[in-house]
């Protein structure tokens, strides 16, 4: 039971991450490789605000989201001047730079030693310690986020974003501003990732930079590419598949020494196969450019 709850909580956190990223990748059509940065900054700012500034859980998380949003703005302004390979490279560059900072700014982040003993969330006087409580908390956040993103995606904003994704020149010809619309999407996606980071940090009560590497960014992108982007079902399919795959392998009795590699190989193979058979992902509606 605990095992199932743990999986559900992880799926919940990754759903928040992938729905947020979907706005940039699926609706904006931009392959971003720095989502783990926003996830990480969210986890670190939330944690540090709780531990060092003594803020309670909710204010810490929300302030963390604001800070991450500002950071996404700083990253997005230069990055969104590029498209295609160059955009991928610039976001990858920011991913590497921020990871280096998280890893080496020992005074603030404790670098590779990580931050242990992160307090559990306290909401309305109730400390969330039990798994089922945590599951409820994550589910609540997930529902709120998905509802907000659903409205955003269905709004004129979402439609304009899709237009820019399909044909930027034509959309610009209709008066859609790529600068503004992509930047909004990028910042929202960063803020949503920040929330997931805060939830993750207080759930596992320990963070170190290795949770927010380039590999993690690739993994998050892969979730969307496998599941499909541009609608609300794709990220669900992708997250469930990518999170449950390693568990399925565990049931097959693969020894722990080889399991991570086999899992990665399956991810790689899945990506290649999809690019041949279904470039829009399992449940997606838009093919990569």
């Amino acid at each position: 039971m605990n095992y199932v709850l743990h999986l559900l909580i992880m799926i919940g956190i990754y759903l928040i991450l992938s729905y947020g990223l979907n706005l940039v990748v699926g609706f904006g059509g931009l392959l971003s490789l720095c989502h783990a940065v926003f996830y990480g900054i969210g986890a670190y700012t939330g944690t540090l605000l709780m531990i060092k500034a003594g803020l309670p859980f909710l204010p810490a998380i929300f302030l963390g989201m604001v800070i991450t949003g500002l950071f996404a703005l700083i990253v997005g302004l230069p990055a969104l001047r590029f498209r295609g390979d160059s955009f991928v490279l610039v976001t990858l560059g920011f991913q590497m730079i921020v990871f280096t900072i998280l890893y080496n700014w020992i005074d603030l982040t404790r670098g590779p030693y990580g931050i242990p003993g992160i307090p559990r969330p306290v909401i309305a006087g109730v400390e969330v310690t039990e798994l089922y409580q945590y599951f409820i908390l994550v589910s609540l956040f997930l529902v709120v986020i998905v509802a907000i993103l659903f409205v955003v995606c269905r709004s004129p904003f979402g439609l304009a974003l899709k237009a820019l994704r399909d044909d930027e020149m034509a959309a610009e010809g209709l008066g859609k501003s790529p600068v503004h619309l992509f930047l909004y999407a990028f910042v929202i996606s960063g803020m949503v990732a920040s929330l997931a980071g805060g939830l993750y940090a207080t759930y596992v009560t320990y963070i170190d930079p290795t949770s927010f590497t380039l590999d993690e960014s690739i993994f998050l992108l892969a979730i969307l590419l496998v599941g499909g982007t541009g609608n609300m079902i794709g990220p669900l399919v992708g997250t469930v598949f990518m999170i449950l795959l390693p568990e399925a392998l565990r049931f097959l009795g693969l020894p722990d020494t080889v399991a991570p590699n086999v899992r990665q190989m399956i991810y790689g193979l899945t990506l290649i196969t999809l690019m041949f058979l279904r470039p829009q992902g399992i449940a997606g509606e838009f093919k990569l450019r």
Binding site: L31, V88, L225, L271, I272, M275, F276, P279, K287, R289
Partner: peptide
């Protein structure tokens, strides 16, 4: 497309 090649 270039995106597909990149991901593959």
């Amino acid at each position: 497309t270039p995106g597909v090649l990149l991901i593959a």
